[in-house]
Design a binder for these strands. Structure first.
Lengths: 197, 197
DNA sequence: GTCTATAGATTGATAGAC
DNA sequence: GTCTATCAATCTATAGAC
């Protein structure tokens, strides 16, 4: 267990970046927490930027996969729900990284450069798909709002002091709420008429 | 027109803080833009923190008023809609300040200290009211998600490259979307049965 | 692989002349 | 009220011994 050090550094960096923000976290602080000196970090990562990349890049890559898959799908009530749930899973699984983007967007954008623009473009593509073909302004705004709903995965912790929501609650409630925003909620069976549009 | 300088500084700071983030904006940069030296800024504002306060405090105070007013209201479909719309107005009117909170939360939280905690508490109180009395986990999560929907006022600009949404579109669409998330959407008249719960 | 020591740059803030 | 000059702190990053 020796290439372990590199991974330990990455884990500590992820935690600190996520809790305090990227710019607010110094390499000195990371080094202390790992039990090394600042200089030793540079043996494992050539710069603070490369450390951020190690933390962030795999998540963006995964995100890209989802968006690419999505663009090949026809947009129906079922596929939208499927995509929404897949996005939720990414948000839940990668809460920490998503938290970096959310809490320190300003600081991170500068350092990530093109990769940040990539991330933005992926968001745009996803929203465009969610909004459907030849969307009205309302369709596009609701697609954006639906993505915001998924972001509640991250902010929910702020509003709860006594324990968090379970992952199942987040998944179940937020996917339904997002579908509501997109006006694709399943018709309640009791009220008759299964298909209406 | 001489106390103007102080106001000019504030305006420039607001713009830069909002676009680049608080920590990412140096006093040197603000001074250059205003046409002064760094040292001269300190004649008008005693510190970078006090400059941030001048930008941010009035908005938080306004926000507090809304939340205080709200807690005195009984929660009905109509009052919820009213509160949602009032929140939307604050978001729209103070887009720039809200953008500071959203894009550089990490950097701003440290400097604002107790005032940041105040802001957080106001958010919690509003969400608690929106969730209604003795709420389930779903009620609380949906209240949080509804607030996120209002945040689309800020992010919508990111997703649009060709022109922005009008304020009227933001107001109309996002208030309806938030009500959908809260499951308080007006019953469509055509489907009969006005009151169901 | 880890260390000490330090370079080089930037920042928030102050002193004091005008 | 604005300036020049400077301080002290902090940060990323590098050099070189072990």
């Amino acid at each position: 267990m020796d290439g372990d050090t590199r991974e330990t550094i990455r884990a500590v960096a992820l935690e600190l970046f996520s809790n305090k923000g990227f710019e607010q976290t110094s390499l000195r602080e990371i080094a202390e927490r790992v039990g090394l000196t600042k200089a030793s970090l540079y043996y494992h990562y050539s710069s603070k930027q490369s450390l951020l990349l190690a933390v962030v890049e795999p998540v963006i890559t995964g995100w890209r996969t989802i968006v690419d898959d999505t663009s090949r799908l026809e947009r129906t009530s079922e596929t939208v729900r499927h995509v929404v749930e897949r996005c939720l899973d990414v948000f839940i699984t990668n809460r920490a990284v998503a938290g970096i983007f959310q809490r320190d967007a300003a600081g991170v954008a500068v350092v990530l450069g093109e990769l940040w623009d990539d991330r933005t473009d992926l968001g745009k593509r996803l929203v465009a798909w969610l909004a459907g073909p030849s969307p009205t302004a309302e369709d596009r705004l609701r697609a954006i709002a639906a993505m915001e709903v998924l972001g509640a995965v991250l902010t929910s912790a702020t509003y709860q002091d006594d324990g968090e929501f379970t992952e199942d609650e987040l998944r179940a409630v937020l996917s339904r709420a997002a579908m509501d925003v997109l006006r694709l909620a399943a018709e309640p069976v009791a009220s008759g008429m299964r298909k209406l549009g």
